[in-house]
Design a protein around this nucleic acid. Sequence first.
RNA 1: GCGCGCGUAGCCCAAUCGGCAGAGGCCGCCGGCUCAGAACCGGUGUGAUGGGGGUUCGAAUCCCUCCGCGCGCACCA
Length: 882
Amino acid sequence: MQSEPTPQSYDPATIEVAWQAIWERDRTHEVADDLPRSQCYYVLEMFPYPSGKLHMGHVRNYTIGDAVARYKRMRGFHVLHPMGWDSFGLPAEQAAIERGAHPKAWTYENISYMRGQLKRMGFSYAWSREFACSDPGYAAREQDIFLDLVEKGLVYRKSSMVNWSTGLNTVLANEQVIDGRCWRTGTLVVQKELPQWFMRTTAYADELLAQTHQLPGWPEAVLTQQRNWIGRSQGAEIDFPLADAAGRPLAEKLTVFTTRPDTIFGVTFMSIAPEHAALDSIVPATHRAQVDAFRDETRAVSAHERTGDTAEKKGCFTGAYVINPLTKERVPLYAANFVLADYGTGAVMAVPAHDERDFAFARKYGIPIRQVIVADGAAAGELEEAFTGVGELIASAGFTGMRSDAAKEAITAKLEGDGIGRGTITWRLRDWGISRQRYWGNPIPFVYGERSGAVPLRKQDLPVTLPDDVRFDGIGNPLAKHPTWSTTGKDGQPLTVRTASGPEPARRETDTMDTFMESSWYFARFTCADDAKPLDRRRVDHWLPVDLYIGGIEHAVLHLLYARFFQKALCDIGYSSVREPFKRLLCQGMVCMESYSRELPDGKREWFYPDEVEETHDDKGKVIAARARKDGAPVQVGRVEKMSKSKRNTVDPQQLIDTYGADTARLFILFAAPPERDLEWNPDAVVGANRFLKRLWTLVTDHLAVLAAGAAFAGHARDLRGADQTVVRKVHATIKRATDAMEKDFAFNTTIAACMELMNELKPEQLSPPVFTLGVTTLLRLLAPMVPHICHELWSRLDASRDVTAAGWPGYDASQIDSDLFEYPVQVNGKLRSKITLARSLTGVALEEVVRGHAEIQRLIEGKTLRKLLVIHAKIITLVVG
RNA sequence: GCGCGCGUAGCCCAAUCGGCAGAGGCCGCCGGCUCAGAACCGGUGUGAUGGGGGUUCGAAUCCCUCCGCGCGCACCA
């Protein structure tokens, strides 16, 4: 049983709630929009999906962001630090299906609970700017923007093969397909053809790629991933005329894309995607049946199995031939399972000698392999594997002898001159399919006239709102099944579109937008959340780019690429002139914990909660065994991995707050690891964090009389001696370390360590009151961004005139850090041999003279030859003797 | 396979420009306090900085290579 807290003991529940009430009452963390930009700072954390309650990943993300926001405020910045809710999405509908809860009610109840948790953590958000994406106001403004994008030609509709999740009955983006399975449900993804709405992300492919080289504040890993995803590929399109079996050219042609036009003289066949549209007209009747069969066979397997690394390369001769435009040679055309219809032109000139896939294919089907490139200095010979490098051309007519780079250009130029090819760039990046066959999303503001087809809504007919009376049975799209919604206008009358010949009956688009749409501009809306228009350009341009954006690396190519695209699109429809939304990106690591499990006889795994397990340690404290309490039988200590419910290695933030308070949770999270690194949850270390705060509490409250009585020491350390001098130096050194750590990488862990060190030095019985006061007040100011409640509370007891935030981040005086003497380590031939103490003020030639003459140095070189003497001021003395 | 990152004490992690390997915390151990325990206070660190090689007066740090772990991409022509 815990004893009842006395007024003197640290009672986080009371002081934290009290300060949170003060911040709420005073609207402490709101910020104006008209201050000089150089004094402003926009820090943003990726807003959460309101799934029910905060998990430890959220708490870490938001703790980091809050510590930055509070730190920047103490440095005098006007900080914009908003929060909202990414509240459209599938889990709400899953809840409706499974529990009968209405998505709207479920979502807003979750928001209400989670907002309470955020406030209980003491996060310093500008709550007046809060919104949820499912709020009618936000969704309506997004529709407004959408229509502008339509106007600008950045939205279009086309029928296309889509990833269809059999688990969700909906379309998934490529990014939502992981190993051929649905990212959410893990069910199989199949290919299906549907009309879809697309955002023209490819219109910005060049800029999206180029700007990755101008984002120094982003982690290299994210930039690399985005570059891979965009996938720029420079090469040429080349036309190959079709030929009949006798080799006579036909009128039709096939165009290939290649990055290696220099290998064109090595082409011995052509391969084409089995579902390529041109095949129907190309394949002669004699081969039609088997090509169709091959296509169906290919289609039957999922995209992943088909293109996976291990998949067998298979093909089928089409009965057709093409002519190599440079050699005029006739080569066979194969349908091949590894050729993708939607990349490049869907057809590939096959050069087995210089491409691994073509090599394997040629071996399998007995197709000739003709080498046309040799590595520099090598001779042509029998190839055991494809040579995919660059080198010198052989057997390539007039291009023989050229190097690959030159040949690429020369051959492309020749093809261009002949009108049968052209240099071109192909992208891996596709347009963004945004249609979702779901209810809980933002409706796409289009209608379909009976005869006139898809028509965008007029702005005065916005917004399209979701109906509340919807049934959820988990099959198909609830919106499409609603009896009246899709055919009723805003005025309650049957929906029509205007045409030249008068109103025409129409029905609504029932697809809703991918929820990545909402998260693509919420950071802009935060700058002007009260504006009637979708965005207020003045304020958007005032605050953007976000100075620091914090979130998980799992969004490296999803959200972060869409948001970059969207920002550029917003610029081009007049809402901003800032083309990159995030100046600096911080990707925090995962929150991990040890897991315990054992294998059951049936091969399954049984997982244990930590308190179900007893560990035994050796005499150094190393864990040597673990067994389950219930049966005493051993369990395996799993590796430290991301918290997950199924592995029973989660910690509930609410429980943590209830037990230790928000400040302890914050302190542990910031102290246990640097932000980018994975954090290993350690319940013992949480207790340690709590212990530190208790000691801080006691240190201040036990000496309130002394601390509140007089001012902190403001003189110079040189005028002090003994413990007072040591502590004043320590104070300045600590401020420097803490400041450097914050400015460099937000290395809260080292900032906190420096504070712990300082506190260990603060022994009131050995210090004069002004110096002790300096130490304590410095400590409170340095810790305030990280553990704001306890620091505000203690500060208020020392100084009622202003709060600790207003007191600001302390500055330091470099001249007060170091003592007048420096103890030089002396290395002889790289080994530490001795130490000598000299005045720090000694530098340069004078310093070297003193060292040379020093008795200790003389002793070290006695009887040997001094070959070299290096004296680095305030660092080290190195002797090289022989 | 390719790309990015990481590897320091039993564990989590520090170490500005290449300059004495150790700041802080946890665990363990010892001691104080206590009838006793918890809490609290004090004390307590011997590692080839993952292996090998190189550059240097000097390498945890820079370069090469290998090993291990994590993440991402993966038939993109």
